[in-house]
Design a binder for these strands. Structure first.
Length: 289
DNA sequence: CCACGGCCTGATTC
DNA sequence: AGAATCAGGCCGT
């Protein structure tokens, strides 16, 4: 068991970041959060400008590398705030959710969970993912509660579509099983997409069943280093319509074009703040309708 | 390129 | 109460 203290020199809000709909496996007990990151059990707690991290199986140095990477502490969030500040709506959302970080997740876990997310809701997604881990994930810790890692592509591929269906995934079971098989067979190398540019990485992901534009953008933003990705889900669609287009009709394609021009290389951060703002405060700033 | 309907499921609404 | 509706979409037409 190792534990470390990480000094926080930038805006950082642990609870906001872990509950912002990017990851679905964190469990809160008081002020502490426990979850599994890249196969390692972690417990985290924020005390002001210090992040306390503990892990039963990682040495100190590995823990000191993993946690800052997961929370993207290498991103200069203050500088990104300054960029986005010129947009009043984005700035409002930032102020209301100060310290919310994008997470750097495992690519397979991010892709798989967002395949599970389609036309679903957070409680159900959380439950589905928990079931998958319980049934097909490798045991992570020996003491106390039996935590499980997110199942590998091979494990879900071997399980098969019928079993995933019985795990409660509904029609997403076929998509997930087929995509797991493609990844397990090496047909597509997710890690390699980290180095690829946004357009070609997205094109690769779109070949996979169950992966459309929105799911691909989530995987690109939350795990594949594409901070310009701007996932458009129902919440973001409504937020952009109401806050930037006076409630008028806008297609998803138009939004992507618009986001690129308006927010540039860090559009993904803008998206995350607008998304979270919309979810937590409703339409808020729109008086009419 | 855009619009539309179907799709597992479960919670909420009318 | 039982039928719509909606939920962090994708896919085929």
């Amino acid at each position: 068991m190792s534990s470390i203290e990480i000094p926080l020199r930038q805006p950082f809000n642990l609870a906001e970041s872990l509950a912002s709909g990017q990851a679905f496996r964190w469990r809160r007990k008081g002020r502490a959060f426990t979850g599994v990151v890249c196969g390692h059990l972690l417990t985290l707690r924020q005390q002001g400008d210090t992040l306390l991290a503990a892990s039963p199986d990682l040495p100190d140095d590995a823990l000191a590398a993993l946690v800052p990477s997961y929370f993207r502490l290498d991103d200069d969030l203050s500088a990104i705030y300054e960029e986005l500040r010129q947009d009043p709506r984005a700035w409002t959302a930032i102020q209301a959710n100060w310290g919310l970080r994008l997470l750097r997740q495992d690519p397979w876990e991010a892709l798989a969970t967002f395949i599970c997310s389609s036309a679903s809701n957070i409680p159900r997604i959380t439950r589905n993912v928990a079931t998958l881990c319980r049934r097909y994930g490798e045991r992570v810790s020996l003491n106390g509660t039996a935590w499980r890692a997110f199942p590998s592509p091979g494990a879900l591929s071997d399980a098969g579509a019928r079993a995933l269906w019985r795990a409660g995934l509904g029609y997403r079971a076929d998509y997930l099983a087929d995509t797991a098989r493609s990844i397990a067979s090496g047909e597509i190398d997710l890690s390699a997409l980290r180095q690829a540019d946004y357009a070609s990485a997205k094109k690769e992901l779109l070949r996979l069943p169950g992966v459309g534009v929105k799911v691909a953008d989530c995987a690109l933003l939350f795990s594949l280093e594409k901070l310009n990705a701007f996932p458009v889900d129902r919440w973001v669609l409504r937020a952009v319509q109401d806050w930037y287009f006076e409630g008028g009709h806008v297609t998803e394609k138009q939004i992507h074009q618009w986001a690129e021009e308006r927010f540039g290389p860090h559009a993904g951060y803008a998206q995350q703040y607008l998304f979270h703002q919309r979810r937590t405060e409703g339409r808020g700033a729109t008086p009419t309708e």
